[in-house]
Amino acid sequence: MDSSQIVLIAWIAVKIIALVLVLLVSVAYLTCLERKVIGWMQTRIGPNRVGPLGLAQPFADVLKLLNKEIILPTASNRFLFLLAPVISIGTALAAWAAIPFDKTAVLANLNAGMLYIFAVSSLGVYGVLIAGWASNSKYALFGALRAAAQTISYEIAMGFSLVGVMMAAGSLNLQAIITAQAGGIWHWFWLPLFPLFIVYWIAGVAETNRAPFDVAEGESELVAGFHVEYSGTTFALFFLAEYANMILIAALATVFFMGGWLSPFDGTPLAATFAFVPGFVWLLAKFGFFIFCYLWFRATFPRYRYDQIMRLGWKVLIPVTLVWLSVLALAIVGHLAPWFNT
């Protein structure tokens, strides 16, 4: 191994560490934001004691969780019990490798980036399944069963909606998908793929087990579902994974349907005025919106019942995607302007 390779590997390692650090800090602040936003929606104040405006709250939470004892249930399978949170957080972080933040800012510009992300995020359900099984607790098992069924069902709907994106962009590379949407807000895929966009977003919320699809945790039914037996750091890992996945789904929604780091003013007279704004600002603004939707849903909707989620997934979302894929195929074959005429 010569020195240039070592430098390259070190450079990649630095990039990975930088990405993970930024991600973990944003996850920490997402938890804070969630408590604040839901607090405001519920006529409360939210955390405001630790640090100015409660901004040190996430770190207090982390310290608290790290200091707590990790309780290992005697009847649990110890190895799998500890492996499960690692799988959860590992897959949640690994998926970020392929997310483009700007024209050149991406850790791994994979040609099959979409497939990679889809595969890695699907692996996340193993963390939940193993956690539920290894805990050897009845509530946890129920949570795991529900999570498995739900994730598999919604993976199909999500996969189909991504097939639409792939057809429209003609590529699996995330950068190529973004550049295929160039030309202004009306060229972004949310418009020609509108039903797929909605299906993707619903499936995304369901994939991350967030309200109103949070039956795997189901506070009022299963107490905490699959992670009922977890405490301290092991719980913190699940928690981090959940929020990292939320950000991931929001980022993907941005990349696939909202033009990623493209400026919303392209194709308008204002394009030149806003040309100085770097791409990742637009990216952040767009996925900030999706993140807010997550919190908004949580404060608004009642929880679905387990079988109703299945019905929604199989009987509504999947047929919708199938129909729209056919429509899309016709549009592409017919070179429908302004999206598919190049």
Binding site: I38, M41, Q42, T43, R44, A211, P212, D214, E219, S220, R298, A299, T300, F301, P302, R303
Partner: peptide, 16 residues
Amino acid sequence: HGLDLGAMSMFLYCFR
């Protein structure tokens, strides 16, 4: 009831 069915904001509104 809202809280049990997952509509947790109801709880806070009612308590107001």
